[in-house]
Amino acid sequence: MPAMPDDRPVATLYRMVMPTHVCPFGLKARALLRRRGYAVDDHWLTSRAETDAFKAKHDVKTTPQVFIDGVRIGGYDDLRRHFGLTVRDPNATSYRPVLAVFAVAALIALAINGLTAAPPIGLLGAERFVAVTMMLLAMLKLQDVERFATMFLGYDLLARRWVSYGYVYPLLELGAGTLMLARLWPWLSVPVALAIGGIGAVSVVKAVYIDKRALKCACVGGSGNVPLGFVSLTENVMMVAMALWMALGVAGTM
């Protein structure tokens, strides 16, 4: 190992580096220490026996472990706290998945506009944004339909009467969004979007604003920590508005 520079503080890091596993948190801890100006005395734990012996010696349950000035700081999360950085709470409410969907949908809509020589901002771009958003939200639900359906049953009025609707809903949303994006078969996409969006909006209003229930939103799939309310209502209102807009367009061509 190369000599450590004398002008930098030294942190000692113990992390798992095995033939079939390299601890990702050990890599993140090493990178964070280096960003903070530390030279890292990097010790590899190369076998399960060596790792277990290290844990027993220092009375710790996990690796990596960081030591600064001879004092044990702890694992990666402890290191972040030591530097005054935030540590993500896996159970905390987060709107990041929804914001990511909206941002990616907007970029895809802009890209499609560019490919079709359409104005970057306009009604056509708005249509494409809504359609792509529906497709992306459906994709998130389809990643774990069972978990989505379980959460969906907590508040959707139709799903409570017809359980299979919770499994069908993502496919209906995906199909309607795809047809709307392609501007195909409005006789099918419009009523589907009106139905699922309308039922969804009524269900959210009843559960959140009338019954005052605190529930998680199934809009980004069953693994999200988004509270039921504004986001899910926005999803449903967007579908209804899109369907009405396309229905008006169809009527205008007759």
Results as ranks from 00 to 15, higher is better:
51 T>M: 14
52 D>H: 03
53 A>T: 06
53 A>L: 05
53 A>Y: 02
54 F>S: 10
54 F>K: 07
54 F>G: 09
54 F>T: 09
55 K>Y: 01
55 K>C: 13
55 K>S: 02
56 A>P: 01
56 A>I: 02
56 A>C: 00
57 K>S: 02
57 K>M: 12
58 H>L: 10
58 H>D: 00
58 H>Y: 15
58 H>P: 04
59 D>R: 14
60 V>C: 08
60 V>H: 00
60 V>Y: 06
60 V>T: 13
60 V>K: 05
60 V>Q: 03
61 K>C: 07
61 K>Q: 15
62 T>V: 08
63 T>P: 00
63 T>R: 04
63 T>S: 09
63 T>C: 15
64 P>F: 07
64 P>K: 07
64 P>L: 08
64 P>D: 04
65 Q>V: 10
65 Q>A: 03
65 Q>R: 10
66 V>W: 09
66 V>H: 04
66 V>R: 07
66 V>F: 08
66 V>Y: 00
67 F>S: 04
67 F>M: 05
68 I>R: 10
68 I>D: 04
69 D>M: 10
70 G>M: 15
70 G>W: 12
71 V>R: 15
71 V>Y: 02
72 R>D: 00
72 R>A: 13
72 R>F: 00
72 R>I: 04
72 R>S: 07
72 R>C: 12
73 I>L: 13
73 I>H: 12
73 I>G: 07
73 I>A: 12
74 G>W: 06
74 G>M: 08
75 G>A: 10
76 Y>A: 04
76 Y>W: 13
76 Y>H: 10
77 D>K: 07
77 D>Q: 05
77 D>E: 13
77 D>L: 11
78 D>E: 11
78 D>H: 08
78 D>P: 02
79 L>N: 03
79 L>V: 01
80 R>W: 05
80 R>I: 08
80 R>P: 01
81 R>D: 01
81 R>N: 09
81 R>A: 12
81 R>L: 15
82 H>R: 13
82 H>M: 05
83 F>A: 03
83 F>C: 12
84 G>R: 05
84 G>F: 06
84 G>P: 01
85 L>D: 05
85 L>R: 08
85 L>T: 05
86 T>K: 04
86 T>S: 15
87 V>F: 09
87 V>H: 01
88 R>E: 11
88 R>G: 06
89 D>K: 10
89 D>H: 07
89 D>E: 01
89 D>V: 05
90 P>Q: 14
90 P>L: 13
91 N>A: 14
91 N>V: 08
91 N>K: 13
92 A>L: 05
92 A>M: 12
92 A>Q: 11
92 A>D: 06
